[in-house]
Design a protein around this nucleic acid. Sequence first.
DNA 1: CTGGATCCTTCACGATACTG
DNA 2: CAGTATCGTGAAGGATCCAG
Lengths: 128, 128
Amino acid sequence: MNDNIKPQQCKVVNALDTLLGKWKPIILQHLLAEGTLRFNELRKRMPNITQRMLTLHLRELEEQDLINRVVYPQVPPKVEYSLTEYGKTIEPLMEALHQWGKSHLQHIENVKKSDLTKDEGNKEASIH
Amino acid sequence: MNDNIKPQQCKVVNALDTLLGKWKPIILQHLLAEGTLRFNELRKRMPNITQRMLTLHLRELEEQDLINRVVYPQVPPKVEYSLTEYGKTIEPLMEALHQWGKSHLQHIENVKKSDLTKDEGNKEASIH
DNA sequence: CTGGATCCTTCACGATACTG
DNA sequence: CAGTATCGTGAAGGATCCAG
């Protein structure tokens, strides 16, 4: 729609869009960590998610070819979710996000502390 | 409270939270690319953003210590925004997101194409 | 057990007008 | 020029019930 926007940006936004949704990163982390999980196993690992949201987000991840959905035609139903081979390529990205998120928390802590000791808040440029 | 949830997840979510908001990644990209920009310069580079959202997101980024806001006490007002030294640490992360987003678009393209040629859609597990 | 269908709430974002 | 103040909207998410 707009060429003023650097190509770079679009792709970053795109990455974020496909990884987002309140629960997607968490679902992906669980599948990364544990391989294959059934619907209810995932649910137990995310006590605050509703069935609806779990279903919706799993469908979206499947559509992005990030996860496999395997239905065992039996009763009671059994459905297993796992990362696709392609889906596993997000691991380094998740790791990078994790590292940055971790150090960011640390950084914000430090900033708050030094705000208490040091007189801060004079960010106006001086005019000479 | 819940040890089933891997520590990793929390931090990923945290990273995403502080980088998110519809316009934050774009603002950051512009500042990464161009160094220092005035309010209106940023606005021109994002034709679809409203003043309100630009202001809000800049404030939030400032609060996260990712950008500097320098007010020149003059009339008409002049305010310059730039990344903090700390803010520049997001560059590798943005690059990683960009690369993944790019290859993801590619991948989705390929998947769609092979869905057309190959008969796909039989993902039920066989029962022997 | 998995998950569809409905209804409801909230909040991020947008549109617009005003101001030092 | 660089904001603030208000009001409105839609879409994401939550709660709940039903079904194969």
